[in-house]
Simulated assay, not measured.
Amino acid sequence: MCGRFNVIDDPRTRDLLETLGIKARLHTRYNIAPTEEIQVILSEDGAPRLRNMLWWLTPGWVKEPGTRYSMFNARAETLSSSRAFRAPFRHQRCIVPASSFIEWKSEDGHKVPYDIQLQDAAFAFAAIWDHWGEGAEAFHSCAIITTEATPAFRAIHNRQPVMLPRDCIQRWLDPEIEGSDLSDLLQPMLPGELEVFASDDHINNSRHKEAPRHLAEPVRLG
Rank of each mutant, 00 (worst) to 15 (best):
G3M: 08
I8Q: 02
D9G: 05
D9R: 03
D10C: 12
P11E: 10
R12W: 13
R14S: 12
L17N: 00
T19A: 09
G21P: 02
I22E: 02
A24Y: 11
R25E: 15
L26F: 02
L26D: 03
H27Y: 08
T28G: 02
I38S: 00
Q39I: 06
Q39G: 09
V40D: 09
I41A: 08
L42W: 02
L42Y: 03
S43P: 08
P48E: 09
W55H: 02
W56L: 06
P59K: 11
E64F: 08
T67G: 13
Y69A: 15
S70N: 14
A74L: 12
S82V: 14
S82Y: 09
S82A: 14
R86E: 14
R86G: 10
R90M: 11
V96E: 02
P97I: 06
F101C: 07
E103W: 01
W104C: 07
W104R: 07
W104L: 10
E107D: 13
D108C: 06
G109C: 03
P113N: 01
I116C: 02
D120F: 11
D120C: 07
A122G: 08
F123W: 02
F125R: 00
A126P: 06
I128V: 15
I128H: 13
H131P: 08
G133F: 09
E134H: 13
F139K: 12
C142S: 05
I144V: 15
I145W: 01
I145G: 00
A149D: 12
A149G: 13
T150L: 15
R154D: 12
R154K: 15
A155G: 09
I156H: 09
I156N: 11
I156W: 04
H157A: 06
V162C: 07
V162P: 03
M163L: 12
P165M: 13
C168N: 13
P175L: 11
P175E: 07
I177L: 10
I177T: 05
I177P: 01
S183F: 08
L185A: 04
F197S: 13
S199L: 01
S199Q: 01
N205K: 03
R207Q: 15
H208I: 10
K209H: 04
A211C: 12
A211M: 12
A211H: 06
E217I: 02
P218H: 05
R220G: 08
